Computed example of a mutant assay.
Amino acid sequence: MEKKDNVIVKVSLVDQVIEQIRQSIFNFEYKPGDKIDLKELSEKWGVSRTPLREAIRKLEAEGLITYKAQKGFMIRSIQPEEVEKLFVVRKNLESLAGSLACDYVTDGEIKEIENIHNKIITLPDKSDFSKIEDLRVLHQLNKDFHFKIYKASKNKFLIQVISYMWNISAVYIASTLSTPGRINKIIKEHGKILLSLKKKDKAGVQKAIKKHLDSSEKDIMRGYKKIQKMI
C-alpha cells in the first residue's frame, strides 16, 4: 500500500483501509474504548466514508471494534474477568489446532515455521521495545509462527474462531511484547512447540501451547494494567 504524508494513495480496496486501522490500533494511536471518528479518518487518510464504513463493519465482525448506542464505533475493550474466560477458549482451541497439525503438517510447512522461529531468535534482546517498528516486527513474527501451525491443521472453521479470539485481544497481546524478558520467553516456549511438532507429538504440542498461553495470559494481565494507565 502506497502512502504519502500519512495519506492513503490509490485506495481501491477495503482491505487496505482495514490494515491501516489495524496498524493505528497496534501503534496505540487508538486505545481500548476510544471512539472512531469516520470524518476525522476520512480527512486524515484521504479516503471516502464508504470504504471506511465497510472496513469498520468488517472489523466489528472480527471483534476488534464494537458499536455502542449513542457513542458509535469504539475500539473493543476487555475486562480482567474476561481475560480468563478468553484464555480458557484459546488454550483449548489452539492446542487442538496444534494437535491436528501433527497429522497434516508437511515438511515444507515445518521449514517455514522454523524459519519464522529463527527470525525471532535474531531479533534484539531489549528490555524495552520502545520503537513501534520493533514491536510491529515482533508482533507479526509471533502471529505468523502461531498461525502457520494452526493453518497446518487444515481446519478452516477452527482457524476462523482462533482468529476471532486473537482479534478481540489484539491490543493487549501487543502490549505484552514490550514486557521485559518477554522475547526470551517467546523464543523458549516457541522452541518447545516446534520441537514437539517436528516429532508429531500431539500431547507434547498441546502441552507446550497451553504452557505458552499460560505465560501469555499472565503477561497480558500485567499489560492490561499498563494499558489502563494510558486510557
Rank of each mutant, 00 (worst) to 15 (best):
Q140L: 08
P124Y: 02
D107G: 04
L96K: 07
D107A: 09
N167F: 15
Q160D: 14
I116W: 00
S95Q: 01
T106I: 11
D134S: 04
Q160W: 10
A97H: 02
F87A: 04
L141Q: 08
G108P: 12
A101Q: 09
K126F: 12
I121T: 08
S95K: 00
I110E: 00
E94H: 05
F157E: 10
V89P: 05
F157L: 14
S163A: 10
A152E: 04
K151R: 12
E82H: 00
D125A: 07
D134E: 11
V137C: 03
N118D: 09
Q160C: 02
S163N: 14
V137T: 12
T106R: 14
D103G: 10
K119Y: 00
I110G: 00
Y104I: 04
V88Y: 06
Y164T: 15
K148T: 04
H139Y: 11
C102V: 06
I159G: 04
F87M: 09
L93G: 10
S169P: 03
H117V: 00
L158K: 14
E109K: 03
S169G: 03
L141T: 06
E81I: 04
K126N: 07
E81P: 12
Y104K: 12
S153N: 08
A170L: 11
S77L: 08
I116M: 00
K143T: 12
L100E: 08
N92P: 00
K131R: 14
P80A: 02
I132T: 11
V105K: 06
W166E: 13
I78V: 14
K85H: 06
T122L: 07
G98M: 02
I149A: 00
I120F: 02
Y150R: 04
K85M: 03
K156G: 08
F87W: 01
T122M: 13
N167R: 15
T122N: 13
K151E: 12
I159Y: 15
A97D: 03
